[in-house]
Structure formats: structure tokens, C-alpha cells
Computed example of a mutant assay.
Amino acid sequence: MSISLTAILAGTVGAVLVLAAVGKLRSRAGINVVVRQLLPARLTRWSRQLALVLIMVEFATGLACFIPGLRLSATVLASAMALGFTVLALGTTLGLMNVDCACFGGTRRKLDARDVARDLVLLIMAVAVWTTPASAAISLSGSALVIALVLAALAVAFIAGAGRRRPGTHSRSAATAPPATRSTERLVP
């Protein structure tokens, strides 16, 4: 069996998008808030519907990455989405905007450098698919195929894992802590 490296990259991008969409669908409240944060005040009443559209586009794009006839278009759209996600993550990390992350569903948190790195990796993989000429696509077989599939699985785990909050690893600053915690922190020398 032989498969191209571009197919593996597209499949990896597709898997990440599908996982993200399913996570958002399972935890709609988080993505609804994030979309509301991004909209001008006069459009916030449409945030739930727009969040659902985002989820469906992300899911459909992810699935299309697996279909050879749609792979090129899907990865171009995935690149645009990843670029947008990167801009949001970078803007929030640099303090230029204030956007939460509900990237894979679950608990919302502030976007940070991990999100910038994750989104850049996703962007690079998606762009690599549609910028690689078909004649230059590398065909993998045997052990090279196994290694490429393992690396793709690790990339999906890294990208999906970077969007999840792990218990005990998210520190809260005194400014965002509940009032009772803030007052006790002030008493400690």
C-alpha cells in the first residue's frame, strides 16, 4: 500500500478540524461566548447561530480533507481558518485583543503562546498540502508509511491537546481570582 505525504498532512488537518468541531458541538456555551466576544454589539444577538455555522464549516472542511477530489479546496479553506485562528491567538497573546479559547470545547481559557504554536503548525500543514504540486507529492510505503502515520497521529494529539485545559496547570492571577481568594492573598506576606 502506498499513500502520499500530502494525503497524510490533509488527513491530519482534517482530523484536527473534526475533533475541534465535535468538541465545540458538545460544549456549545463556550464557543457561543467566544463568538459573541468577536462580534460588534449590534450583531451579538446572532452569536449562537454564527457559532453553529462555524462548527458546521469546521466539521465539513475537516471531512472534506479526507476526500481526494475535495482535498485541495478543503485545505485552502482550512488554511484560511488556521490563519484566522492564529491572528486571534497572537493578538490575544500580545494583549491587542481579549478573546477566550473554546478551541476544542470544554472549559474556556485565555488564548496564549501554546495556541499560537498549535495554530501555526496547523496552518503550515494545510498550506503544505495545497502548495505541493501533485507531481512532487512523495509516495510513502512500508516503514516510511508507518512512521508518517505515527507522526500524523502525534501531531493530532499535540494540536488537540494544546487546546485543552489540564487540571492543575492553569494558574490564576490575583486580578482574575474570586474576591475571597484575592483578599486572603493580600494578607499573606
Rank of each mutant, 00 (worst) to 15 (best):
I8M: 02
S139Q: 15
D119I: 02
T86Q: 11
L88Y: 15
A175P: 03
V16I: 07
V35K: 10
A157Y: 12
D100G: 15
T131W: 12
Q37C: 13
P167H: 12
G105V: 01
R45M: 15
A74Y: 01
R71I: 00
V188S: 00
A117Q: 03
A177N: 06
A180P: 14
L140F: 13
I8P: 03
T107H: 09
R36C: 08
S143T: 03
A41D: 15
V13W: 06
T169D: 08
A10C: 02
G23E: 05
T169W: 04
L122F: 10
E58Q: 14
L154Q: 11
D119Y: 10
G161N: 09
R114K: 08
A102Y: 14
T12S: 06
R164C: 09
G95M: 10
T169A: 08
A29S: 11
A174G: 05
R36T: 12
A78W: 12
Q37N: 13
L145K: 09
R166M: 12
S27H: 10
S143Y: 06
S73P: 00
G163P: 00
A89F: 15
G168N: 01
T176A: 05
G163V: 04
S183K: 15
A89L: 13
M97K: 04
A113E: 04
R108E: 13
L140V: 11
A175F: 02
A157M: 11
T93N: 14
A78E: 11
